[in-house]
């Protein structure tokens, strides 16, 4: 077995090729029940993870729990968001580990990762904003525009993450299905002979 390098140069694709050769990856990929069970847990984690995110987002938008201070919602709901996040990440990494090369070269997976990064940046900026200003609007039924925008961005970006996650299953833009447009081949990182 070679290390995570392709042609002497360390690359993400080389790393994925190395991952795909590891015995546990092959076992997971070929398993009759473990893979579907992991995938089911990944889907179910969405109820807890994104479901609880939506509760917080809707509160930030002033669309639910208007009598409850924002800080009360976040301190009581976000631990559950975190629990759901851990389950989603662990099962998600396992799903990637089972099919590393195709997933890495999937345009939908790449959009999903971008949406995940976008969601993360939105959350970080929101928390910085909340730490600075929340005491002034914590009990208000309708938070200020900045907080409402963050809630709306969160709703949209998580919907994109979910939709793109589902689309990974479809092979329309797979690298082994040529011809594809130059844009698709570039975005999916296809290595063409």
């Amino acid at each position: 077995m070679t290390g995570p390098s392709a042609g002497g140069k360390v690359s993400l694709l080389g790393f994925c090729e190395w991952l795909a050769e590891t015995p546990w990856s092959i076992a997971l990929h070929e398993s009759l029940y473990v893979y579907p069970v992991v995938e089911t847990i990944h889907v179910l984690s969405l109820l807890l993870f994104v479901g609880s995110v939506i509760v917080v987002d809707l509160r930030l938008l002033g669309w639910t729990l208007r009598e409850v201070p924002v800080s009360e919602v976040t301190t009581r709901i976000l631990p559950w968001t975190f629990a759901g996040f851990v389950i989603a990440v662990v099962t998600g990494l396992l799903l990637f580990y089972a099919i590393p090369i195709r997933t890495y070269l999937s345009i939908f997976f790449r959009i999903k990762v971008l949406a995940l990064i976008g969601s993360g940046i939105n959350v970080l900026l929101l928390h910085r904003y909340m730490n600075r200003t929340r005491s002034a609007w914590d009990v208000g039924a309708r938070p200020p525009l900045r907080a409402r925008v963050a809630g709306a961005i969160s709703l949209v970006s998580w919907a994109v993450v979910i939709a793109m996650g589902r689309m990974i299953a479809y092979n329309w833009f797979d690298c082994d299905r040529q011809p594809q447009s130059d844009f698709v081949n570039w975005a999916a990182g296809c290595v063409l002979e």
């Binding site: 889907v43 969405l46 109820l47 807890l48 994104v50 479901g51 609880s52 995110v53 939506i54 509760v55 809707l58 998580w158 919907a159 979910i162 939709a163 996650g165 589902r166």
Partner: peptide
Amino acid sequence: LVGLALLGG
């Protein structure tokens, strides 16, 4: 699936 997340919440 997006509906499932909302239902979950």
